[in-house]
Design a protein around this nucleic acid. Structure first.
Ligand SMILES: [Zn+2]
Length: 289
DNA sequence: GTAGATGTTATAGA
DNA sequence: ATCTATAACATCTA
């Protein structure tokens, strides 16, 4: 589910809400205890009574600073959600439950973090690939060392991108874009969208790109990620922001999810979906050379 | 019913 | 260096 734009949207929705709030109670669904560390008690003890000092994001990882020494890190993987409920009252509209924080906890709520002011943060995750973990400063640095360049960094420029290209010359370009150690935060949707904008076929070897294709791709990545953040992410099935609401970028997708449909750009090609590594890649065989 | 696919990532082995 | 298979898990679709 969530790639950089979705995680960034959650981060922006959460930080204003929960910074400086004190955690009063944490509960963990039984089957999820193994995903919060060695024991439920250690996890609770690290959080209860503490105050969230800061919220940050790196790649698709969220970080909640507890104090100088400790942080809570959260990865949503495929179907994770973080939804904040401002008040502890249930609202039902028209007699039917509505989507969003009003009906939480749900069947898929794995971790519940209650604050002293009676507001609540829910971690929901259908597939349970996600995790929450308490880390010290050293462990946090280790976790962060796995990530490459942030595409929305102000200093990220073409020479940087070129040097990344030169370090992984034989990779297929789609796999190159998905590598978090190279560029942090792209996932299947935005890698496909970036390649479409740059008119580059996902199966091309990185070292086969012409200088002009390299530049187009660099610009496309930055442009797509920024635009997706502006539209508050893509909701395909599970993604919701911190308020439980959907994103808007799905309306602007040009290839992802358009298998067998006519290409929106050349109006001639039929969007084709192939397997590349273990992931799918969608592209227009006519205008992505 | 059932095989295959889903927005992620870590790891082992070739 | 790079790729493959595999695993974690639940749900939906063809
Ligand atoms: Zn096309």
């Amino acid at each position: 589910m969530p790639e950089l734009p979705e995680v960034e949207t959650i981060k922006r929705g959460l930080d204003k809400q929960i910074i400086n709030k004190r955690i009063s109670k944490v509960s963990i669904e039984k089957s999820f205890i193994k995903k919060v560390g060695p024991s439920a008690n250690a996890f609770k003890k690290a959080l209860e009574g503490k105050t969230i000092k800061n919220v940050a994001r790196r790649s698709k990882l969220l970080m909640f600073e507890i104090n100088k020494e400790q942080s809570l890190i959260v990865h949503l993987k495929m179907t994770g959600q973080l939804v904040y409920r401002p008040k502890n009252n249930k609202i039902v509209v028209g007699g039917h439950p509505i989507a969003g924080p009003q009906n939480l906890p749900s069947k898929f709520t794995r971790v519940t973090i209650q604050f002293a002011d009676k507001t609540t943060l829910f971690f929901n995750d259908v597939r349970k690939f996600g995790f929450l973990k308490i880390v010290d400063r050293k462990e946090l640095n280790e976790a962060l060392s796995k990530y490459g360049r942030e595409p929305i960094d102000k200093d990220f420029n073409f020479p940087h991108f070129k040097s990344l290209i030169d370090k992984s010359p034989r990779k297929k370009v789609k796999s190159f874009l998905l590598e978090q150690k190279i560029i942090a935060g792209l996932g299947n949707i935005y890698a496909d969208e970036s390649l479409f904008v740059a008119k580059v076929n996902p199966e091309r070897r990185v070292d086969s790109l012409t200088k002009s294709e390299q530049k187009l791709l660099f610009v496309a990545i930055v442009e797509i990620i920024k635009k997706a953040i502006k539209y508050k992410g893509t909701t395909f099935s599970d993604y919701v922001n911190a308020k439980g609401g959907k994103g808007n970028f799905q309306k602007h997708l040009q290839v992802y999810g358009r298998n067998k449909l006519e290409c929106l750009r050349c109006k001639k090609g039929i969007i084709t979906k192939i397997k590349l590594g273990s992931r799918s890649a969608s592209f227009c065989p006519i205008c992505q050379k």
